[in-house]
Design a protein around this nucleic acid. Structure first.
Lengths: 140, 140
DNA sequence: CGGCATCCCCAGGGATACTG
DNA sequence: CAGTATCCCTGGGGATGCCG
């Protein structure tokens, strides 16, 4: 299946007609990209990462910052991000309890490519909306 | 909600509490990024785009290329990508019917940022897997 | 061949209540 | 405050069949 293609070695910025396959790569997940995208591709992970880009936040601060996320989802999302090494969780032995979340180096390094994507989205959103409209005009 | 932050030109490094919603912000989608991500963030869009990076393909060729996608999902994914202007669909009046899919300029331009992300995923996948394992060691 | 329509199932996720 | 446990329901998406 094509999943392998996405996992190719280096992303040539030049248009390369032949995507090379690396036959020997097969760890836990068949495709690193699918693996990564399955995580950050969910409804909330990117929002959480973006929120933490501003600095350390506590659980409820994150809830308020994102606004429309449930406790359960925030909790689950944070655990996964922590698990994958994007986020560091620090518990303070206080009363009432305090837990702080912050980006790790890995998490911060991810924001680079992410910003590229965000930038592209910003730049091209108008075109997309326009395409969508004109498509709506042609079809129903 | 935080969605706006992702759409901003430059993410504010100051922790800016935005507890209130902006009721007036409502184009088609509240946030370009959410809008774009909701599309390409699904299970299949990126795979389709990657497949078409190699060149024009027909419907069944795409099915075979991706391998584990159903007709319905491929059809739906292609329609959305076409709708958003990433993909061009060409129907040939032949018997049997022939339909070809190819990337538009917009679609191709998107592969730039995408490759950055792919590159990052490739580079850091090992670290992620490692983090995941060590987390599994600490917790259950 | 290239799809849309239909059926059907189950897991993702919201709401709520409870705990440390 | 910072979660976990439980319930419940919706809709995403697979399988299949039909049509141009």
């Amino acid at each position: 299946m094509l999943a392998r293609t996405l996992a190719g070695p280096a992303p040539p910025l030049e248009p390369s007609p032949m995507p090379e396959r690396s036959p020997e790569i097969a760890f836990d997940q068949p495709c690193p990209i699918r693996d990564v995208l399955d995580r950050i591709g969910d409804q909330w992970s990117l929002l959480v990462l973006a929120a933490l880009d501003g600095g350390t936040l506590r659980f409820n601060e994150l809830m308020r910052a994102i606004g429309d996320i449930s406790k359960q989802m925030l909790s689950q999302t944070l655990r996964r991000l922590e698990q994958d090494g994007f986020v560091r969780r620090t518990v303070f032995a206080e009363v009432p309890p305090r837990v702080e979340y912050e980006l790790t180096d890995l998490g911060r390094s991810f924001l680079g490519p992410l910003r590229q994507l965000v930038h592209w989205a910003d730049e091209n959103h108008r075109d997309i909306v326009r395409a969508r409209r004109s498509f709506g005009a042609r079809a129903g």
